[in-house]
Design a binder for these strands. Structure first.
Lengths: 218, 218
DNA sequence: CGTCTCTTTGAGTTAATTCAATGCTCGTGG
DNA sequence: CCACGAGCATTGAATTAACTCAAAGAGACG
């Protein structure tokens, strides 16, 4: 289970990019780019996690997506970035100059297909996020969030899942307050559905119960 | 102002599609396709309005997007549609067989660029929708929704804007209940920011005030 | 003119928030 | 080595924005 010891490999369609990538380190909380910046590069997370945020004038914040090892971000073919990207914890990312990417896109149908498919995956994710924010309760949102983490880690009952982000990050992703996130986490612990050995990991005790809550089939 | 008398024209990049389009009528409430159906076509609304919905097992509903005259939907390059599409009112849509569209995409860079750009517009819209559902109050959501309608209609103070959808549709788009939508509409009327000559139109009285509420700059 | 659907408004309830206090962990400097 | 402070996290108490339930109004249509 899990990926091997090395860094995540590029999808075979995109190996051509390898030559033009630049590796950069970011420390916890550091900004990678800001909403509105010229979108000169596309990015991929090698290790660590990144959050994509929308900041409102009065300080409210909505996290649009968390990006994990091996995932791309900043793909959207637009003038300026639509969100701010920040390192959740210490992270290494690779950046590829957009003109190069577009050149490869023009040349190779396989690259285009892959880019389209990455975009559409993002879109699918955003749809379920939208449903979550619009129509799910706090408990359901948190359960859905944890389910996604569990699924991505390919974990089952008894397994430990890494939780790189803070409670505030989770709250800003779920459209809740930090207190509500804490309370619902405590409720899940009390129900023996999860346990939390430390602040940055959880252990799944009852995957089925978690999925049942997340999927709203009451 | 507004579009002329004829039907909205295809973007010049995509005129090639004209030859392979099939025009279809749908009546108020009718389903165009259902989430999960094989995504064999892409669509464009000629007149009327369409809603893209996610239905939850227990009957809750989230509207992901409203599609208006001239706009495309069902573009995402995936196996099955990610949402259900229904006619908001009587509507005419054109459908284009996806294989044809993909063929043109392979042949013409201009078509590809246009498709990419349509997708990324949708993504931008979804980002602001996400912020709205996650972090804005009922009043702010409604104001933002109306602002978008006003902007799209290129309307200003005193102009009437068409409101094809029901209050319930608006509620399901904004992640609220129908009662809350009604109450906030009444509040905007009382504040002389809008008026509502009938159920399917509103008159903008104070664009600035509306935008001020929508943009959360308190 | 009665029926059906949609909308509006009121009254009471509740899920989630705000405000406040306390606890936990970790790193730094005395 | 321990004490202290900083930064998160957790829990409790009080508040509120939005919800539910209920009743009445307003069109549309046969």
């Amino acid at each position: 289970m899990g990926h091997g010891i090395g860094l995540p490999a590029l999808p075979s369609d995109l190996v051509a990019l390898q030559a033009v990538g630049t590796r950069v380190r970011f420390t916890r909380g550091e900004t990678i780019f800001t909403e509105g910046d010229a979108a000169t590069k596309i990015y991929r997370v090698l290790c660590g996690a990144v959050r994509l945020c929308k900041h409102m004038p009065d300080g409210r914040r909505q996290i649009v997506e968390f990006i994990h090892d091996g995932d791309f971000f900043g793909l959207m073919p637009v003038t300026g970035y639509a969100f701010t990207a920040e390192a959740v914890n210490d992270a290494v990312v690779v950046s590829y100059p957009r003109p190069q990417v577009e050149k490869y896109g023009e040349q190779f149908a396989s690259v285009r297909r892959r880019l389209f498919s990455l975009l559409s995956d993002q879109m699918l994710g955003m749809h379920s996020h939208l449903v979550m924010l619009g129509r799910q309760t706090a408990k359901e949102r948190l359960a859905a969030f944890l389910c996604k983490l569990v699924e991505r880690a390919d974990a089952g009952n008894g397994d430990t899942v890494d939780l790189p982000m803070t409670r505030q990050d989770i709250a800003d992703y779920l459209g809740l307050t930090i207190e509500t996130v804490c309370r619902e986490l405590s409720a899940l612990k009390k129900a023996h559905i999860i346990s939390a050995p430390d602040l940055n990991s959880i252990v799944i005790r009852n995957t089925d119960a978690l999925e049942r809550i997340a999927s709203c089939e009451d």
